[in-house]
């Protein structure tokens, strides 16, 4: 089977693509060939020829769905992929909308519904928490920097300043709030979310929902080392019953379809807050594969409509330690992907 995967930017703030591909290639229930889909010429996955058979550049999400569809049609003619796994938040809207058309071409996906995707937006988190009975930190979507002026009295310092899709920075005073507001809104647009900062320990859960309320896979992880970009550089699988219960509640209540990552914060009294729902596979997914839950494989099976048993077990106390790796690349390869858009 041929699977196309995005998110090949295995850099210091990595996309999940390369880890997803490793999971797919290690799948026991099928063998597959990987097509990479890239946005920029220096995404490392493009040059990992032992993992990725061929890469095609695709247009940025901001170019719109028609541009994406046209490019996917071209790729379809060349490669006839059976499945696409998009791995960026910002491209999901287009892929969810295009899913029925892709299906007609014989390309499967397994994505959240548009309603699920919209509902879990950071902007909607307070309403989301209330609807499904999940504790979330207080937050407000703002459209001008001035609206943030009174929020510190409600939430206290520091405030978390978040972009609609990506990016989050802590601010300890109004000047910093303004600076973050301007920087993040310039890149990701409006609104900006101002969130209460919850002191505590961060946990993450990655999982897979079958779309009917059932959990197909779930692995909780605690970050052990965090880079200056806020990304985990090391983490450990843990046995946290409360986090798993919260995870099960999330999947059951929302009937989540597809992969996701929950960002949780446990405060000093042991209460969990749901900080964010990422509607896609996280970059540390290979830990899940390594502890016995090959989520990319299960995702591919669900997408193809094959019977898929839920995972019931994973190894606790396994770590992932991320590392950088310098590849030697011929200029000709860079030239190919930069001028032809294919490699």
């Amino acid at each position: 089977m041929t699977i196309a995967v995005t998110g090949l930017n295995a850099i210091d703030s990595p996309g999940p693509g390369v880890a997803v591909i490793r999971g797919l290639l290690e799948a026991e229930s099928f063998s597959c060939r990987i097509i990479g889909l890239s946005y920029e010429s220096l995404e490392p996955g493009i040059y990992m020829r032992d993992l990725v058979s061929k890469t095609y550049s695709i247009p940025y999400p901001s170019s719109g769905m028609d541009a994406l569809m046209e490019r996917l049609q071209y790729i379809h003619q060349q490669e006839k992929p059976d499945l696409i796994i998009p791995n960026f938040d910002s491209e999901l809207y287009s892929f969810i909308k295009l899913a029925p058309r892709l299906k007609k071409m014989g390309i499967h996906t397994f994505l959240p519904t548009l309603a699920q995707f919209e509902e879990r937006h950071k902007v909607n988190l307070p309403a989301f928490g209330e609807k499904y009975g999940l504790s979330v930190p207080r937050s407000k979507a703002v459209y001008t920097a001035n609206e943030t002026l009174s929020l510190d009295r409600e939430y206290g310092w520091p405030l978390v300043v978040k972009g609609k899709y990506y990016d989050a920075s802590l601010a300890y005073n109004h000047e910093q709030v303004k600076a973050h507001f301007n920087r993040i809104s310039a890149k990701w647009g409006l609104p900006i979310i101002i969130q209460e900062f919850v002191h505590g320990t961060e946990y993450n859960v990655t999982g897979l929902g079958d779309g009917e309320g059932g959990v197909v896979a779930a692995v909780p992880m605690r970050k052990q080392y965090i880079t200056d970009k806020g990304k985990a550089w090391g983490g450990i699988s843990i046995d946290d019953k409360k986090a798993l219960a919260l995870n099960a509640q999330f999947v059951r209540e929302t009937k989540w379809r597809g992969p996701y990552e929950l960002e949780l914060m446990k405060d000093k009294s042991g209460n969990y807050f749901l900080l964010e729902i990422n509607p896609r596979i996280p970059a540390w997914i290979y830990l899940a594969v390594g502890v016995g839950q090959n989520i990319p494989e299960a995702l591919a099976r669900l997408a193809m409509g094959w019977p898929t048993d839920p995972f019931t077990h994973y190894e606790v106390g396994k770590m992932f330690v991320r590392y950088s790796w310098d590849m030697i690349v011929d200029l000709a390869a860079f030239e190919q992907i930069s001028t032809k858009g294919e490699l």
């Binding site: 946005y39 940025y60 719109g64 541009a67 930069s338 001028t339 032809k340």
Partner: peptide, 9 residues
């Protein structure tokens, strides 16, 4: 972005 990425824009 590689130029053809923008082609169909």
């Amino acid at each position: 972005p590689a130029k053809f990425g923008g082609r169909s824009n």
